[in-house]
Design a protein around this nucleic acid. Structure first.
Lengths: 337, 337
DNA sequence: TTGTACGCGTTATCAA
DNA sequence: TTGATAACGCGTACAA
């Protein structure tokens, strides 16, 4: 039907067909208000007939805007893709960007230590802005990212970055507090926790929430550390219950680790929730695949992703946003506590 | 340290600093063999000093190559992002593309029926090729995608497309056969299945595998349909066991639906695997979060993704690949059968 | 309201 | 081996 002459049609060809100049076609394409209705109609007809699509490269060259934003994963470990959190963020971001003219390009650190490649790309003006899905904080990449001359927003308060930056996150401390306080309200008196790595805000803050409530209730701490994987959760659970056999409550910093803990408890012959009540964090799909179903702290991940996209779009548009935005969590009560 | 004069440095500036012409710098950047070593050294020093990065837009404009490939989800339903299958594909694709100069652009259908936007984008020369993660087959979008004047590869044989196209998939029929035959080998004689939607190859082919074995074994079919979600799996399981209470074996077309079936069986008071043996499909994370753990058919998803990327890169490079590539599955035996 | 003409940063062709 | 110079397709002063 169209484009049969090899390359895509150009502004020039549309102009010829519509009987106007390139400039006028350009105006119509970009919605300039100062074009006669008749002219607009003629041009649009020509555009439709030819199936014209603006050449992004040419446009970017002159406007110095690429109409694309990067979703950056500054870690070579692509396991993040399997993380339900990442999936939710991706979903929120892409749903928000879809109706926009902006495209989403996925950037992942190609190999351990190859930060420079990422930074050069970002500095090269190939994208208008970047959303950083930062997990591990100690990385000095975050520092460099934060200082890039480019609109940037982080999916979580970047650990170790001192300058003010835009970020979107959930109140992990409060979420953890809710979980532990709920356990307390159910009469649990000896509550332990499986924490995440302390170089991630999610690990750090959720542990802090637990510690705060423990201190307030005069309860001794019982902590084991996992790495947010099923295996790590299993090992932590085994260790925790070997060390503190009298635990009657357990707050786990992620649902995935919680499912592992549930299995360990089952093998240990401890009934859930009768002997030990368990609360997770995330409210991911897995929370409903276990028996009993998992009571967990829900975070509005997709909303976080959507907001991330809104912020980067706003910053690209010139808005000056450089502070964290915190969303609240919600306790979802199911069978495990 | 660099780029302090506003925009990124250009070829021109590098040339000035190195005392050569733009053309020579361009040659060095693109690794032309016909440049004197001394000149190369001088140019590279200038590049390093200025922190020069080629302008992608300008380059794309003249070479007519964008160095980017699209990962297309031709459905407005962004739930796919939460699908472990999609995550694995994304992982394989991005790992393969990362060391390359190619960027990955994520394209999702913005709204129901807005196929045209997607097609125009793809036709507009914004990417060099596209990987289509097609789930639902009846969509006529697939037809149009298959006929695009652009290197294309599908993540599964696109249902309803008659022309030869490149695709990468697992042998779903054989995988399902393995599962059902295994159930048979364990002494199960009354085996039912929870199938996926018939407009997806995964749904269709896995059902076919079940039906083949059932026919060969002279076993009556017992089929219920789910939609690859937990809720759908639950409803299908309820319906199936209401209709066929004597089932002693169950093959479920996806792990997620299998976890739901496991819960239903538990509520029905049927022990797994003693009363009913269950086999899933995928070997996703959830397969190990259930009690008992799920015996399932594993597909090498990440490998599929990697191959998808290799194929699209090859096609962009001129290779003529237009036939399906089929990978095999593997039965992972755990506790449920 | 519309058209002319220039420049965006690169690559590629052709001379030198 | 290197250097001018002409495209590539588009936006936008500036002029008409």
């Amino acid at each position: 039907m169209q484009g049969q002459d090899g390359g895509s049609p150009t502004l020039e060809q549309v102009a010829a067909l519509a009987g106007v100049s390139r400039a006028t076609v350009s105006r119509v394409v970009n919605g300039s208000p100062k074009v006669l209705p008749d002219t607009v109609a003629a041009v649009e007809r020509a555009i439709g007939e030819l199936g014209y699509v603006p050449n992004r490269a040419a446009r970017a060259l002159v406007t110095r805007r690429t109409d694309s934003v990067a979703l950056v994963v500054p870690e070579p470990d692509s396991r993040v893709f399997s993380d339900p959190f990442f999936a939710g963020i991706l979903r929120g971001v892409s749903m928000t960007l879809a109706p926009t003219s902006s495209q989403l390009v996925l950037l992942i650190e190609p190999a351990e230590g190859d930060d420079q490649r990422l930074l050069r790309y970002l500095r090269g003006g190939h994208v208008d802005g970047a959303i950083i899905v930062s997990h591990h904080g100690r990385d000095n990449v975050l520092q460099e990212l934060a200082h890039l001359p480019l609109p940037i927003v982080f999916s979580a308060r970047p650990l170790g970055v001192e300058v003010p930056v835009a970020s979107v996150d959930v109140d992990n401390v409060a979420g953890a507090r809710t979980a532990v306080e709920y356990l307390l309200s159910k009469g649990r008196r000896r509550i332990g926790t499986i924490a995440g790595p302390l170089d991630m805000t999610a690990g750090l803050d959720r542990l802090t929430g637990y510690q705060e409530v423990a201190a307030e209730a005069g309860m001794a701490e019982a902590v084991a550390y996992g790495d947010f994987t099923a295996d790590g959760g299993e090992q932590a659970a085994v260790k925790l219950f070997a060390e503190y056999p009298d635990l009657d409550g357990l707050f786990v910093a992620s649902d995935l680790m919680a499912t592992a803990a549930l299995r360990v408890l089952s093998e240990l012959g401890r009934r859930v929730p009768e002997d030990v009540s368990v609360v997770g964090f995330d409210d991911s799909v897995m929370a409903t695949t276990t028996t009993p179903k998992l009571t967990t702290v829900r975070q509005p991940i997709e909303t976080l992703g959507a907001r991330l996209a809104e912020i980067i779009l706003a910053k690209i548009g010139g808005a000056d946003l450089t502070s964290p935005e915190i969303f609240s969590t919600e306790l979802i009560i199911r069978g495990s506590a």
